[in-house]
Structures are given as structure tokens and as C-alpha cells.
Amino acid sequence: MYDVTKPEHDVDQAETKISARDVQVYYGDTHAIKDVNVDIADKTVTSFIGPSGCGKSTFLRCINRMNDTIDICRVEGEIRIDGQDIYAPSVDPVQLRAKVGMVFQKPNPFPKSIYDNVAYGPKIHGMTRNKAELDEVVETALRGAGLWDEVKDRLDTPGTGLSGGQQQRLCIARAVATQPEVLLMDEPCSALDPIATALIEDLIDGLKKQFSVVIVTHSMQQAARISQKTAFFHLGNLVEYGDTDMIFTNPQDERTENYITGRTG
């Protein structure tokens, strides 16, 4: 059914990085996320799948508290990263977001140079002491995003001048430049062509050595290709969560089966 290569699975279970308990999200009067409980492992790729409007992106945005920026949004329950409740009053969303990077659906480079795009995070957090250190951080991040060789000669040209795929990798570089521990990706390939998508997928596979990567995707093939764990969301509920193999070959829930076999969606 899927002509894809099975991802090589890390057999040894990594420790839990993110754990969510009874998470509820309300948009005004709408109950967008209901009772979500999930443990996300470190150094793995976890994908969230489900029909559009099922709440997978909303839940993703809870993990770095991006929902705080929406006036009418309210989050209940608890989400812990490394045991620390990120919604505790003592936690500063600014610091949290530096540790939990995010890549968005549409490439959104700032209208600045490539260099300044990547250096933006390290600069505002004061992570480097001098220009040489900053240069190094930028280079590392760009290499990490597989973009260095393409742009090293034109770091001072605007990031908006790159192609769509390059822009998205630039955004990944921008996110990893602050040395996060978790990388959230909200349908990072949906605006890209197949070749650019393949490049990014390769990149994600490499990134999991360093981070816990959580990716929202509408493409089940993509989830199957790149993730070790998969969570299936439906109408704001987390219906099923487990090893990607299990979800795709032997789903426990009828709704999951209907979705992955294409009967709903």
C-alpha cells in the first residue's frame, strides 16, 4: 500500500522528554483539545497525524506556549518537559521557547540577511560573547540544517531571496541556533515540492540524534517514513499513540484504521 522504506527504528526506548496530562485547550467557547495524555520520548521523531481541524497543531503549539500569544486561547492540565511543568507561573515562556524550538508550516524567514536570520536567537539571548563565537554558532546551525554549502558565500543576502525549500531549512537553522532540546515542526513540508521535502526529511532524521523532534503532518506516508512514534488525533481527542509500525499496520482503534486506510479524512 505504501511504497516507502521502513524507517530504521531505534530499538532501545529513550527516556521521556515531554509528558502531558489531562491537557484541555479552549478557544473562546470551543473545546479544541480534550483530555490529552501523552509521553514523548527524547531523541526520537514523534509525528502527530489526523484529519484537519483535529487539534494536532493546537496541541503542538501548547508545548512551547505559542498559544499564549492568542488572546482567547486557554490551556488547562499540565505539560512537563524534563519533569518541569511549563505552565507553572515560575516558567518564563521566553526562556521556554528558546529551549523548545519551532518550525512553521510556511517558511517565515525575517526580511533580514541569512546571517542575521540565524544569529537572531543567539543574539537576543546573549549566547555568545563575540563575533567569532557568533559566526561559529551560525555556521554550526546552517550546517545542521544542511544549508551551509549553499549559502556560505552569500550570508549577507536577504533570507527572503532563497527558494522555498532553502527558506524552510533556514528556518530550521534559525530554530536550532538557540540549541533547543525539543524541536517542534508544524507541517514543515506542506508548502514545499517533493525534492525539497525529501531534503528536509533526511535532515529530520539527522536532527533526532540531538533533539526530541515532534512533527505535525497531514501526510501519513511522511509520518511512516520519518517517525518512530505516531499519535493520532481526532476531533480534539488523542485517539491512539504508539510505535509508528503498530499504528500503521495494526491500529487498535476503529477511527485510526478508517483514517489511515483512507475511509475518513
Binding site: 518564563d92 521566553v94 526562556q95 528558546a98 529551549k99 537576543i124 539571548h125 546573549g126 549566547m127 561559529e136 554550526t140 550546517r143 545542521g144 538557540t178 540549541q179 539527522g206 536532527l207 540524534k209 540531538q210
Partner: peptide
Amino acid sequence: MTDATTDKFDWTAPAFQAGLRKRKR
């Protein structure tokens, strides 16, 4: 992926915390 990330940035370092307070101010 290079190995340049071995020296992880310390988010709890006093210098960073002071910087954060300054940014908040």
C-alpha cells in the same frame, strides 16, 4: 551534523538569567 554542539549552552547560568531580567525590564 557536526560535533560543535558538545558544549551545550547553559540556560541556568547566572549571566543568562541576568540578561533575561534585563530583557524583561
